[in-house]
């Protein structure tokens, strides 16, 4: 799941997935609130889950953990 999410984010940002820090807040890796909303929509479509965006989901690791718990 983490690889899938990382691939989506890497494609969106146009960078290599290996260069993305998964434990840093989205804002620190250059993703503002609307970037996160757009990525969440793409991840929902790709993974078939509905994601309720909350302040706690503030980095990739927590987002993946949330999706895997659904």
């Amino acid at each position: 799941m983490k690889e899938k999410v990382l691939d989506i984010i890497a494609a969106y940002k146009g960078v290599d997935a290996a260069d993305i820090a998964t434990d840093k807040p989205f804002n620190d890796i250059g993703l503002d609130s609307l970037d996160v909303a757009e990525l969440v929509m793409q991840i929902e479509d790709a993974c078939g889950v509905e994601i309720d965006i909350t302040p706690e989901l503030n980095c990739i690791d927590k987002l993946v953990e949330y999706i895997e718990s659904k």
Binding site: S33, L34, V36, A37, E38, V40, M41, I53
Partner: peptide, 11 residues
């Protein structure tokens, strides 16, 4: 709420 409205708008 910008994030929720973004999702609503695009969908």
């Amino acid at each position: 709420n910008g994030q929720d409205i973004y999702k609503f708008a695009v969908s």
